[in-house]
Design a protein around this nucleic acid. Structure first.
Length: 328
DNA sequence: CATCAGGGCCCTG
DNA sequence: CAGGGCCCTGAT
């Protein structure tokens, strides 16, 4: 069982995302994998975070409007935090949640687009996000591979219980990720015991370069997209699908769309071409279509459409065919 | 009970 | 560059 740490120290900070900023669609993504390090209710997101050696419990509270955004951030920690620490934390949060992004050009370009226009009206300036570090995102990607969501959730749970830290803060409990050194030192057999299957090897081999400091996420952010791609694809267990997600979510390349998985292919074929699930448009044709229509914003545009679909589903207004595809 | 596919990726030929 | 195999689970 994971150890439980009670975070008694609370620091209050204020964040100012660049307007326009719709809080809920930016801070909660029904289309993302549901990990056990977070929760959301309207106007509020809880999220654990490992930063500079400390496990933190974050609570983001909406205290503004889309036009005049303001977030009250409560940071729960075991130790008292220094100003230097909270400054670096705020920088990191701004990066991970893309708070300072200027999306005015994107909004202007597509406000009258047939599919995108209505969503931009509803959620002008919605951000992309990756609350996790690059390493943590990689772990999630590995447990996502070649299985349905239900199993991914149970693998993640098992990993958190064995190697994570359960944080107790604000009357709630969420898991916090482990340091890369932890998995680097366990045996593949031990990992297999958690029923992660052949993914045990990938989990271990991905942890290595991070444990040894061979991959520095902050440094990698300053490289160009193709250099980032090369570093990622060289990791064992990381292929084109995973790299695509990371270049977009973690490194914020709004134009990264080079691979469409079969189930995404079915969804886009239905949404844009009204094709039956059994008769999807080819990946190549879809890629060409997105490129022509959305140019350097193609993945961002797809994200808006994707999240709109999954928000509707969450509210019980999703299309029938989507349930068929997800098959939970 | 058996069989199969699943939000990939690696390795082989 | 195509295709088999991989761990395991839930669905059939």
């Amino acid at each position: 069982m994971a150890k439980v740490v009670n975070l008694k120290n609370k620091t209050s900070l204020t964040l100012h995302p660049k307007p326009p900023f719709p809080f809920d669609s930016s801070m909660y993504k029904p289309g993302h994998f549901p990990s056990q390090d977070t929760a959301w209710v309207k106007g509020c997101r809880w999220q654990t975070m490992r930063w500079n050696g400390q496990c933190l419990g974050l609570k983001f509270i909406n205290a503004g409007t889309a036009g005049k955004p303001k977030i009250n951030l409560e940071v729960y920690s075991r130790d008292k935090l220094t100003t230097d620490y909270t400054n670096s934390l705020v920088d990191e949060i701004n990066y991970r949640y893309d708070f300072q992004a200027d999306l005015s050009d994107f909004i202007e370009k597509f406000k009258n687009d047939e599919q995108l226009g209505p969503i931009l009206q509803k959620w002008p300036g919605m951000r992309i996000m990756s609350p996790q570090s690059l390493y943590e995102y990689l772990i999630i990607s590995i447990v996502l591979q070649n299985c349905a969501v239900r199993r991914s959730v149970s693998m993640m749970q098992a990993l958190f219980e064995s190697y994570g830290t359960l944080l107790d803060y604000d009357g709630k409990k969420f898991y916090c990720f482990w340091k890369p050194t932890v998995l680097n030192e366990v045996s593949e057999d031990e990992l297999r015991g958690l029923k992660v299957g052949y993914r045990a090897k990938s989990l271990k081999r991905i942890s290595g370069p991070f444990a040894k400091g061979e991959i520095d996420e902050l440094e990698l952010r300053n490289k160009d997209k193709e250099e980032q791609r090369k570093v990622l694809i060289d990791l064992y267990g990381v292929g084109p699908a995973t790299v695509g997600y990371i270049l977009f979510d973690v490194f914020k390349h709004y134009d990264e769309l080079t691979h469409i998985s079969p189930w995404e292919q079915k969804i886009y074929s239905k949404l844009f071409f009204n094709r039956d699930l059994s008769n999807p448009v080819s990946e190549e044709k879809l890629l060409k279509f997105f490129n022509q229509r959305f140019g350097r914003y193609k993945m961002l545009a797809v994200h808006y459409i994707w999240e709109d679909l999954f928000w509707k589903r969450k509210q019980g207004q999703g299309p029938e065919w989507l349930e068929e595809l997800i098959g939970l």
